[in-house]
Amino acid sequence: MRTALVIGTGLIGTSAALALAARGVVVHLADHDPEQARTAAALGAGTDEAPEGPVDLAIVAAPPAHVAATLADAMRRGLARGYLDVASVKGGPRRELEALGLDLTPYIGTHPMSGREKSGPLAASGDLFEGRPWVLTPTRDTDTEVLNLALELVSHCRAVPVVMDADAHDRAVALVSHMPHLVSSMVAARLEHAEETAVRLCGQGIRDVTRIAASDPRMWIDILSANPGPVADLLADVSADLDETVRALRALQSSDEAKRREGAGGIEDVLRRGNAGQVRVPGKHGSAPRVYEVVAVLIDDQPGQLARIFADAGMAGVNIEDVRIEHATGQQAGLVQLMVEPKAVPVLGAALRERGWALRQ
């Protein structure tokens, strides 16, 4: 791949363009908002000038509702040798293209499983996709050359290719992305009119659960409108679990010992099923989940604190597998939770204490 055209310079399109440009691909940028394309170009993602002829690959990074129309326009104009989209749903756009009677041999649907709460080119990063799954949904009609171009794109972005059927993909993302986003929003919505004294008690747990609720509602309306059936089916199952859990909690209020035991059993069941599901979530880089232990360090809200901790851990020969920061409400301090291999805990603990850090159990 020597040339590419990115149509849609939001978070995903600009991030892909940055990754391609960094690897020597000549990238042309287009957007319905020319100012957004100019912003992406200024960030080093490519040029907002139109290509003089067909490029090797056109990447459509438009909202799901506009993907088919944007692709159809690009294909009819002969803008590229191969075409793909990066929308978060795959079955609907493909069927729309089929209904338009287009030759789909130069097209493949794709979906990079990466993102963040912020949108637009200024939120983009050339390493956004690194180590993340990138789903490809070829059909029997997809040309081999186009599949290879898509694989080259994934390689340039340092993502991990995953081949799936389009409708299977849509059911999967409903489970691991779309439904959780709505549930996160529902939990966050409980905070909107909560007493300030209650909100001040928010800890890391509620921050983790509600983090993705900060995303742009307009973007999510587009996503959910393109995949409503699978999401509704999953929410119906969640609703049934909620009904059972409410009944179990009500039973715990009963003066009848047998009902309380029944209620406790119902709560235990949902918690244990949660345990069983959580351990299936892949660990770093898609590997099997691993058990880490936590070394908790108290830090002041001062520049360079995290860098010092990581440097001290490195000097001790300890690899930090993951990190979380729990902020102390109303105080200029926080607790950094360093996740490490169990055997590294005593080594890291001793090294950090020796360098003056305050550890917490």
Rank of each mutant, 00 (worst) to 15 (best):
A264E: 03
N319E: 13
I325V: 14
R211V: 06
L153W: 04
L29P: 00
L147H: 02
A159R: 04
L97A: 08
Q305F: 06
R355F: 05
G91V: 05
H111T: 11
V163F: 08
D103N: 12
V199E: 07
M186T: 09
H156N: 10
D237E: 14
A41N: 01
D73P: 03
G101T: 09
A21L: 00
D127S: 14
N227H: 06
M75W: 06
V146C: 03
A41Y: 00
A19N: 07
G46F: 01
P93Q: 06
D301V: 04
A21N: 03
A240T: 10
R77E: 14
M1K: 09
V163C: 03
L43A: 07
A4D: 10
A174G: 11
A62R: 08
S177V: 03
L100K: 11
R353E: 14
G274K: 10
I309A: 10
A4P: 10
A328E: 13
T142A: 03
P228R: 04
P106Y: 11
V187L: 15
A41K: 00
T39H: 08
P112H: 09
Y292L: 13
R272V: 12
A296I: 08
T14E: 11
Q278N: 12
G286K: 07
G109C: 10
L175V: 11
V162P: 02
L224D: 11
V25M: 00
E145Y: 05
L102G: 08
P217D: 12
D269S: 14
H32W: 03
Y83S: 09
V160D: 02
G229Q: 14
A74M: 08
P63V: 11
V336T: 13
R116C: 14
D216Q: 11
V183W: 06
D208A: 07
G356T: 09
P106I: 05
D322N: 15
S125R: 12
S125D: 14
I59E: 07
D143N: 07
M179I: 00
P51R: 07
R207I: 02
G109L: 04
D301H: 13
A50Y: 05
P121H: 05
P112I: 12
V55P: 08
